[in-house]
């Protein structure tokens, strides 16, 4: 026991003094027989803080263990068993030297399933055309060489300035005022990215002079499931603004309208509360 500690301590001193870990100081056998975290402490620590590392936590298992095919779920949530993803789920079984990973191919296994096309949408995005990849946005400090934080919408602030609403009005003689709304976003894939479990809503409200709500119209962007056609992709595509037009604005003493864009961590209807909901943008415009 003491001996092992001594070795580890000596190794640490070497690393700290040379500022580097080189193959010569560690035998191949050592590398394969110790937990990855022994040597890759920084990486292991930052990965442990991610959603992926706890994708099949205790709570998740309790909630889902009575499903018919937990294996199906675990293919993505914990392919190697345990609490969630582990190093080998992306890097393969080893041994050293590990091959350099191809991003985004390595992510596609879980992020490009039916009802989920994050990687496919990414390939058609302005970000991909600019030569960026997943890590440019999801590993904020990737240059450090140890960052494995894989940040996403669960991290507060991640969704700041991700989407933008433009609310204009066209005065048609026949139809009365029509709201002409544009929704654009800067994610490197569809918005919402990820699986069918997320949704983005545009909510347009007619407001009376005292700010009471006269009417509400909402539209959901995300995945829909059609009984015959199966999954329908109604997400906001990358690099292409979506356009909405609404008329009949003046009813119910409306004096101005307010458009909001919301990111929701649940697929279902708006009237079901989502404590994690994030407002992406909001804008108001008076009726002429």
């Amino acid at each position: 026991m003491f001996q092992r500690r001594l070795i580890r301590w000596l190794w640490l001193v070497t690393v700290l003094t040379t500022g580097n870990v080189t193959a010569g100081q560690i035998t191949a056998e050592e590398k394969e027989n110790q937990p990855c975290a022994e040597c890759h402490a920084g990486i292991a620590e930052s990965f442990a803080g991610t959603r992926m590392a706890i994708a099949a936590s205790e709570r998740f298992r309790r909630q889902w263990q009575d499903r018919e095919s937990p294996d199906y779920c675990m293919n993505c949530h914990a392919p190697s068993g345990g609490e969630g993803l582990v190093c080998a789920d992306c890097h393969g079984p080893g041994p050293h030297p590990y091959a350099k990973l191809d991003v985004p191919e390595v992510c596609a296994r879980c992020h490009d399933a039916p009802g989920e096309n994050t990687v496919r949408q990414f390939r058609q995005s302005p970000a991909a055309r600019k030569g960026m990849n997943c890590l440019d946005c999801h590993l904020p400090d990737k240059k450090s060489g140890v960052d494995h934080r894989f940040e996403g919408p669960s991290v507060s602030g991640f969704l700041d300035n991700v989407a933008k609403l433009r609310l204009n009005m066209r005065l048609d003689e026949s139809r009365g005022p029509t709201a002409v709304i544009q929704v654009s976003h800067r994610a490197g894939h569809a918005l919402p990215g990820g699986t069918t479990g997320r949704a983005v809503w545009s909510v347009v409200k007619g407001l009376k002079a005292d700010s009471a709500v006269a009417w509400t119209m909402s539209k959901r962007f995300g995945w829909e499931h059609h009984p015959v056609q199966g999954w329908l992709d109604r997400t906001l595509k990358p690099g292409r603004a979506a356009v909405l037009e609404l008329d009949g604005l003046a009813r119910g003493d409306t004096v101005r309208i307010r458009a909001e864009l919301k990111y929701r961590f649940r697929a279902g209807p708006l009237d079901r509360e989502d404590p994690r909901e994030v407002g992406l943008d909001a804008v108001e415009l008076g009726l002429p």
């Binding site: 199906y72 009802g115 069918t196 539209k219 009984p227």
Partner: peptide
């Protein structure tokens, strides 16, 4: 624009529980 045009609130649609919930449609909305 007429083709890809989204008309808010005009069509009823199914909100699925998601692949994460075995493709079961959860609620009609």
């Amino acid at each position: 624009p007429a083709e890809g045009f989204v008309q808010p609130g005009t069509v009823p649609f199914l909100i699925p529980r998601g692949i994460c919930e075995l493709n079961e449609p959860a609620e009609v909305y």
